[in-house]
Design a protein around this nucleic acid. Structure first.
Length: 478
RNA sequence: CGGGACGUAGCACAGCUUGGUAGUGCGCCUGGUUCGGGACUAGGAGGUCGUGGGUUCGAAUCCCAUCGUUCCGACCA
């Protein structure tokens, strides 16, 4: 083992999970800190992951009839205050600009923590007939929330996200929209992030400020904590009334439309880091990995090696894959470690030995398994291999999720699940928020959601012992 | 926002107690030899000691403030 290994190494997972996470963020060059608390720099490698998530979602949004728009960065305080619940929810964490040029502003400008009110104001101007509905808008942007505790990707003062905002004629259609978008998020987990979610409805106390219903995708981290990874909301017509959004319906009556909003953020990157990472660093699922295949020439000055490496790259490029050939003058060992740390799913090696035998050596990042293939088989092997890797990574995460989802029949069992076994506890609940409050105070755990799958296992509330109405998933959370 | 720790070269740190020329390892640059799991060698570059103020002939070192990072709580995507 070389001296510098110590310097470059990341903290071991089991030694200090939080430190491991921070080490991976920085050493895999996903981000860097800026000089303002909670505002991070998304470095190219981290930003590229976000771009890949974006490109998947943007396509899905457009296929389902949504249009991208861009709203202003700032919201006049007076406008922000129109919807009461919304203000109460977000006022404590707003960043406000009070001076423009040399003039003190009469109506200070709030840097958007979310853009509901901007969309509402705009919708009130452009919606006047049922023929204007539905309006299905999405915005890619960043928002600012003045957070007290910040962590890279998981909680920042500024983060990148998309926020969808839609208006509909009927409650049914709006509720369906919220559920449809949740399904797209869930697909994203399964199809590109290789992360399984528990999906369900938020309890009253965990809902978005101003929402009638909040739906959520909840991921489970290896330390047993839940990470809310995306939410969709049905707003009813509350905002519409507050912002005077009205249209004439098919019966010539003036009515308020029904509204939704939904979003996922760069927090997903944090989720990917934790769900798939290990002691060697990042391990990226193939479909969002900025580099899917890295080619490392061995003894690249020997005749034919570099030419073969370039040949492989050209052939993989032709398949539409994201491929990197590292022909820098670092040693192969250094490159192996580097790309493992950065989580590149597949490594291919080409050296004199491979040239001689007409084959290609390689290794899979997620399980460190090495393989050898015939040169001629490259094209027909690599795409299915990426797909297999994705499936295996998803399966591994799913197995963990299932193994760490446990029914708790009593508070003692709940304690056992939350503090010893770790992960999600399924509990039966009578619907009284006091019970959830007690759980939170005693275990610092919250109701993550009432899962759509309400297969109950008892008719007694875990707290009160009264007749249970709902199945709730409880966990400690980020 | 409350409690703890930390801030000196890109990274990890020493120096501070007892004020007096800013150091070590890795990384980085140039050349040569290497190359199948973080190579070796010769030479070289790089620092407002987080920032602001104070004490002093003199501050990385002592004092005050402030900003940032991190951990534990409370709050939140």
């Amino acid at each position: 083992m070389k001296n510098n290994f110590k310097n470059e190494a990341i903290t071991r997972l089991e030694d200090d999970y939080a430190q491991w996470y921070t080490d991976v963020c920085r050493k895999a060059e996903l981000m860097d800190y800026s000089s303002v608390k909670g505002f991070i720099i998304y470095r190219p490698y981290g930003y590229a992951i976000w771009e890949n998530i974006q490109s998947y979602l943007d396509k899905r949004f457009k296929q389902t009839g949504h249009e991208n728009v861009y709203m202003p960065l700032v919201i006049p305080t007076s406008l922000f205050q129109k919807e009461k619940d919304h203000v109460q929810g977000f006022a404590p964490e707003t960043l406000i600009a009070t001076i423009g040029g040399t003039t003190k502003l009469d109506d200070p400008l709030i840097i958007r923590p979310t853009s509901e009110v901007l969309f509402c104001e705009h919708f009130s101007k452009i919606i006047s007939s049922y023929r204007d509905l539905p309006k299905k808008y999405n915005q890619w942007c960043s928002v600012v929330r003045w957070e007290k505790t910040t962590r890279p990707f998981l909680r920042g003062s500024e983060f990148l996200w998309q926020e969808g905002h839609t208006m509909h004629e009927t409650e049914l259609e709006a509720r369906q929209e919220a559920l449809d978008m949740l399904q797209i998020y869930n697909d994203m987990g399964k199809d590109v992030l290789a992360i399984p979610f528990i999906t369900g409805i938020k309890t009253e106390n965990e809902k978005f400020a101003g929402a009638v219903e909040t739906y959520t995708i909840e991921a489970l981290m290896p330390d047993g904590k839940a990470l809310q990874s995306g939410t969709t909301h049905y707003f009813g017509d509350g905002f519409a009334k507050a912002f005077n959004i009205k249209y004439q319906d098919r019966n010539n009556t003036l009515v308020n439309p029904h509204q939704t909003s939904w979003g996922v953020s760069t927090r997903l990157i944090g989720s990917i880091i934790m769900v798939h990472g290990d002691d060697n660093g990042l391990s990226l699922p193939p479909y969002i990995a900025p580099t899917q295949v890295v080619i490392i020439p061995i003894q690249q000055n020997k005749p034919g090696v570099l030419a073969k490496a370039r040949d492989l790259k050209a052939r993989l490029d032709k398949l539409g894959l994201r491929v990197k050939l590292d022909d820098s003058d670092r040693t192969p060992g250094w490159k192996f470690s580097e790309y493992e740390m950065k989580g590149v799913p597949i490594r291919l090696e080409v050296g004199p030995r491979d040239l001689e035998n007409g084959h290609i050596s390689g290794a899979k990042r997620y399980n460190s398994e090495k393989f050898v293939m015939e040169d001629a088989d490259l094209e027909k092997t690599i795409v299915p291999l990426l797909s297999d890797i994705h499936d295996a990574m998803y399966q591994k995460a799913l197995t963990y999720l299932l193994d760490h989802t446990t029914e708790a029949h009593s508070l003692e069992e709940l304690d056992e699940v939350l503090n010893t076994k770790l992960g999600y506890a399924k509990v039966m609940w009578d619907g009284d928020l006091e019970g959830l409050k007690l759980i939170k105070e005693r275990f610092s755990a919250t109701a993550r959601c009432m899962p759509f799958n309400q297969a109950g296992f008892s008719d007694k509330c875990i707290v009160s012992g009264k007749k249970a109405k709902y199945l709730v998933v409880v966990a400690k959370a980020y």
